[in-house]
Nucleic acid binder design. Sequence first.
DNA 1: CAGTGAGCGAGCTTCCGCTTGACTT
Length: 772
Amino acid sequence: MIENLVIVESPAKAKTIEKFLGKDFQVTSSMGHIRDLSKKEYGVDLKNNYDPQYIVPEDKKKLVAELKKLVKTAKTIWLASDEDREGEAIAWHLSEELKLSKDKTRRIVFHEITEKAIKDSIKQFRAIDQNLVNAQQARRVLDRLVGFELSPVLWKKVKPSLSAGRVQSVAVRLIVDREREINSFQSTSAFRVQGDFNVEGAKGLLKGELNKRFIKEAEAKAFLEKCKTAAFSVKNVTTKPSKKSPAAPFTTSTLQQEASRKLGFSVSQTMTLAQRLYESGFITYMRTDSVNLSDLAINAAKAIIEKEFGKEFSEVRQFKTKSKGAQEAHEAIRPAYFEKSSISGSNNEKRLYELIWKRTIASQMSDAKLERTTIDINVSNTSEIFVAQGEVLKFEGFLKVYIESTDDENEEEETGLLPAVKIGQSLLRKSITAVQKFTLHPPRYTEASLVRKLEELGIGRPSTYAPTISTIQNRGYVLKEDREGLERKYQLLTLVSNEIKSEVRTEITGTEKSKLFPDNIGVIVNDFLIEHFKEILDFSFTATVEKEFDDIAAGKMEWKKMIDVFYKPFHKQVEETLKVSEYSKGERLLGNDPATGKPVFARMGRYGPVIQIGEKEETSGEKPRFASMIKGQQLETITLEQAMNLFQLPRNVGTYEDKEIIVSVGKFGPYIRHDNKFVSLKKNIDDPYTITHERAIELIEEKREKDKNKYIKVFEDEPELQILNGRWGPYISYKKNNFKIPKEIEPKDLSKEDCLKIIQGSDKKKTKTKKK
DNA sequence: CAGTGAGCGAGCTTCCGCTTGACTT
């Protein structure tokens, strides 16, 4: 007989709590939700007032059976899931599914895992809050209805297997919108003038920037001309104290951002590492939207800071959550034990832990104190002035431990100590330069900056940021890519001594690393959804429904009524769209074929984006010509010229051994076809439009050499059975199926019978590997 | 796997939020 059974959500949490509660309490976990809507018929009874149809998913059945057993032997059951909408629903599902009687069930909550918090919570038990549960049911049902009604519309009107939803579709929209902003961005340029001056009696240069930029080169040059004869002097010196304060401790979203910027981790990589740190007991829970620290944590941090750095470095701070829709069921992400400034584990685990440690410690440290100095420099024959900025750190404060990074790509130039000068002092001109500077387009999103934007909009939750980012990539809506920059020329004017030099230099611009780009299908789906379901794609849709969920939670609104008000018009819209809308191919008219005058279209074809010359056969009576677009080309931006280029393929580049060599682009990229054999072109080296006869032969020969090693053994009486050398080592190929050879066997020695035995032995597994 | 740009049409895909493992290709 168990006296008390406590059910929490996570097993790691269960382990810690059990220690605090003593032997009268057994603690177990539900591993999150134990029930979900059935996938049949939406899992919602539309004819019966949206009655949800809950089932226990296959992978939860075993766990639920075990819980049922435990519950039977327990006197009192304490439902201790998280203190938020989802947590309340988990408690309710548990009490429903495990058929818990009200008199032996108690609902408790705590938002820190400390002995005191847990023991206090036991004294303040309550019943399940049905209003809060209903708010969750409304959330769940709404998401299901939106997702399961919109997705099939896409299957019929765009492409099978696509998906749409309240969160993912807005995430894609952000990326498509940003790409369009970038495409239509017009860069302008202006000349930035910098003066370097020598100060008599002081080491180091005084570098100032002119308080005016010149649009035209001639203006910049005219200014430099004036500088030739000008005298320079210090007009003014001001020093102002300033301070910097530390950032709040990590939430899921800020951890993902900083780990991305400082350590180069992807969002999912960060979460996997954090999960391991959590399970090892090194950090608190990693899926949280709270910046709150427990009193215990604050005191522990204070003690460490005072001991390590001194009293003057400590400043106790309590941070407030700013983000919309935060539910704050947990603490911020922090080290479980502050005295551990590093841990054992993999290299990346260590790095992530140290980041968390530093950020949390810094958040409890004092402000950094700075002194900003501004020196205005007079130019005798103009009204413009040069301004030099310097910054001196007077007291390090939290900067001793942690510096927050930013996404800002045009980082400020380093400011440091300025040479000491007096007002009126004259300065010696060393050089004046005018550099042409271009304005930058808004930055593309990284995984982490997209998460930040979603959080800002109140869309998605800490537990879903990483999966959402994966989904939109897996569906082919969005690509995470590096992109090489382009060369750009800029003007540079330099005045040294009495000579003005003008030169043209080149810089690389537009280099992108791990940025999110929309792909063709993402753009088509996005435009389709915006056209037909504007309301749901609106950035404020989630915020609007969240307000209603709050009303439901407060008992001011009935949840099924809320769903009804949403669903009726929404469903009508779905039916209307199915009836009226055209099949969406993202078609765009590029212009006319210079040779025939026929229209040229870019659109999505059955096997990907294609270029089509001429109208379809039914209208024009002639078969149109087709060419597949190549990787990286976008329907939205491809030009007529680029499109026409695609028709140069397949190219005949000559003959070899009396057989033609044909170069073309297939599903897997550019290739050479010769004697019915295929050879891939080398990525980033060969170009199908320009490859020469000689190079093609070289590649053919190279492939032949490789193929020689491909066959380990063939059987004359059984041509369909071969032992081959593949990417992952030797394997058996039989009737188009491949089979692994056990490690201990030497492939060369296998007889035909041996092979067949291996094939039969591995037959069972075959069905599993078919999935993609 | 190297074409094709739809074709008979069966049967499948899909949401968001809680959680942790089982899997290697």
